[in-house]
Design a protein around this nucleic acid. Structure first.
Lengths: 240, 240
DNA sequence: AATTTAAGTCAACACCTGTACACAAAGATA
DNA sequence: TATCTTTGTGTACAGGTGTTGACTTAAATT
């Protein structure tokens, strides 16, 4: 019972462009948008129903199944979409090369602006990072881990960080990324258009990142630590 | 139509101890426990139903209303319970006074141990911090802010931090607390009993906290910054 | 001992949910 | 043009949901 009649679908994964597929993509988009909109108003992704999504997309419930097997699959599609958009933005942000302090300032500002412009996606990510099902949670965390790795390789190119192992650089990066995640989540709960609040959040982020860099300046690389261990305390000590 | 018949309830808020109230407290507890248990298995708080909670507590749905107006009220009770327990634990942890590095190590270890022992509460907090309704979200954030303030006043007593303003100390504290929140959320997703993973998480937390303290050692206090501004750059600069 | 109070039960309601199935319409294929 | 394929519709069902009101039962109060 193998399928003999082959449709015009080609073997490569290029998007279809027929009039019918255009229509399909349009309602698929409508479903995704409906879900995002409902998440903003409602509580979380798994407290909205398939019927609600369909209704909000102007489509009958059963039509939903033409696009997604169930709500989980739609959720995964949203994760993918959100992270893909974010990654592209970060790639653009890294294009510019500037002196350190300006680079921090600029990166933070453009990132926060981006979050504001794509609020719906970040609301979704923030809520599902821990609230969602296991698969969704894991794919979000995996996405964040990817950002940490990318930032890590960027840091490796900075002159005053070359002496550190990749493991150490990963730690520095993860602190910065986590810090930004935190700021993001604060930003999402500030009423839209409150530019003063956004400014102070940006300033806070800059200061926190700066503090971390100041810390790295004093951090004793793992490679050097052994030598000092012989005559000194085990862990790098604070200067009182 | 003021109520004339007064029950034996006294005006102070001491807990009642009658046989009937004992019974009431018992099923109230059963409801809270049922909710916590369901949250662990299910997705999030707002995807579990009143009937489920009642059923899981061995009680008929309508009995629920004798204890909580609706699920939101139960949610708030859970927030309160979770944070109250945590605060008490932190108070105990601060009791011991030890040299700096040992104090960090000890605090981190006992905290993580506590999280493991009260996993259900922290699961709930992590999931509802962003996934829940507005009131629950806010009361959780307010609770976290309280920890930041308490840590901040503790830091103020440390000799090498006395030169900083309360605002700056708040920033340091918030970084440490947020860092620990992050570690907590990682801990919650490690399978129970994997002590090696717990150990490496503890070590990671210690290193990150240490890095922040190293940063504070290089941080130029706001009070001194003005004097340097005259002849130097605006923000404290990195030594390359 | 008589009465009041309150925790828990029972049955019922109107509503919403996910999904199955048969069908209509229109684009794609032959 | 005739046939096949696919997207979306309509109907229907079994089950779960929050909330109601009138009830039992036992402890607390008088």
């Amino acid at each position: 019972m193998t399928r003999v009649t082959r449709s015009r679908r080609r073997d490569d994964d290029q998007p279809e462009v027929g009039r019918r597929d255009a229509r399909k993509q349009r309602t698929r988009r409508a479903l995704l948008d409906a879900a995002l909109e409902l998440i903003q108003g409602e509580q979380s992704f798994n407290s909205i129903s398939l019927r609600e999504v369909a209704r909000n997309a102007g489509v009958v419930p059963t039509a939903f199944y033409r696009h997604f097997r169930d709500m989980d699959e739609l959720g995964l599609a949203l994760v993918d979409e959100s992270l893909r958009a974010l990654r592209q933005m970060m790639r653009e942000a890294r294009a510019a090369t500037l002196p350190t302090s300006h680079l921090i300032r600029r990166s933070v500002r453009t990132y926060l602006r981006y979050v504001q412009d794509n609020e719906r996606y970040f609301q979704f990510l923030a809520k599902e990072r821990f609230g969602g099902g296991r698969t969704i949670r894991l794919s979000i965390r995996q996405g964040i881990q990817l950002f940490i790795s990318e930032l890590s390789t960027d840091l490796a190119r900075w002159p005053f960080l070359t002496k550190y192992s990749t493991e150490e650089l990963q730690m520095f990066s993860s602190m910065i990324v986590n810090l930004m995640v935190n700021i993001t989540e604060l930003l999402l709960d500030t009423p839209y258009g409150d530019e003063d609040e956004v400014d102070s959040l940006a300033e806070l982020a800059e200061q926190q990142i700066l503090l971390i860099f100041l810390g790295t300046g004093q951090w004793i690389p793992k490679s050097e630590r052994r030598a000092r261990e012989a005559q000194n305390a085990a862990t790098p000590e604070l200067k009182p």
